[in-house]
Simulated assay, not measured.
Amino acid sequence: MAEAHGCVLVVDDDPRVARVYAEQLRNAHTVRVAYSGTEALDSLDDDVDIVLLDRRMPGLTGDQVLERIREQDLNCQVAMVTAVEPDFEIIDMEFDEYLFKPVTGDQLLTTVDHLLHRATVDSSLQEFFRLASKRAALEAEKSQTELEHSDEFSELTSQFELLRDELRDSLDELGDDEAFELALSRWD
């Protein structure tokens, strides 16, 4: 996948963390920085492609900023970059990726590149990746027993598998695309 250039908004109430992320991204992307939820919303416009959003901030939280981004129908991808361990409430959140702090520069760059690419694909495939991200975040933090006893996780898994199968069927109709099939198989 060729690397694309994008506009990234880094949102974190810890100025040191925000500056480090910005510096790690600046050589490959245009970067804006906000130190609060309010600043983040003020910094958002149609030029922003990716938002790297801390969940736990005083005042307007990352969760609230995410809700406002989606309410405003801004066409950007959002990665939650946080130390907050995910609980089943993330299933209803409309983020595109969930990263656990501490995050390396390589992880940031890879995530931004993936999100820029995802923004160019069909909405069904974008939804597939959102579901996959939520599923992976919960599987990383929850015990097998907790997952097995969660109706929310069961529904998430059902949605994920249904969408995966629909995408595979569409792929079969279009012809064999080995790279796409490999991407889907990663989430089996």
Rank of each mutant, 00 (worst) to 15 (best):
L131N: 13
V78R: 00
D54F: 03
E97C: 04
A34H: 11
R26E: 14
A83M: 09
S143A: 04
D46G: 08
D92K: 12
T145P: 00
V17G: 01
M57I: 05
V31M: 04
R19N: 09
E39Q: 15
L138Q: 04
E146D: 13
E3N: 08
P102L: 09
E94H: 09
E89G: 11
F95M: 15
E173T: 12
G6T: 02
E39N: 09
L184G: 09
E85V: 05
A22N: 11
F129E: 04
D165F: 01
I50N: 01
S43L: 07
E178V: 15
G62N: 01
G59Y: 06
T111I: 01
D92M: 00
A40G: 09
L115D: 07
A137H: 10
V48R: 03
A132C: 13
G37C: 07
R16W: 07
T111D: 08
L163S: 13
A132N: 10
H117C: 01
S36Q: 15
M93C: 03
L171S: 14
M1S: 12
Y35S: 09
L44G: 11
L163H: 12
D113W: 02
G105E: 14
T61E: 04
A183L: 13
H5D: 02
V121P: 00
S124K: 15
D176H: 14
I50T: 03
E89I: 01
I91N: 03
G105T: 14
I90P: 00
D47E: 15
Q159E: 13
E148C: 01
D46Y: 01
C7E: 12
S36G: 12
V20T: 15
H149M: 08
L108D: 10
F180W: 10
G175E: 11
V65I: 06
A40S: 10
V11E: 05
G6H: 08
D14G: 03
L125V: 14
R56L: 11
Q64V: 06
L53W: 07
D92A: 13
S154W: 06
E155Q: 14
A28C: 10
V11H: 04
L99H: 11
L138G: 07
A34C: 07
E85C: 01
E127V: 01
P86M: 01
S150M: 05
Q107G: 08
E71L: 05
V121R: 11
D92E: 13
D96I: 02
L25A: 09
R55A: 12
A183T: 15
D96T: 03
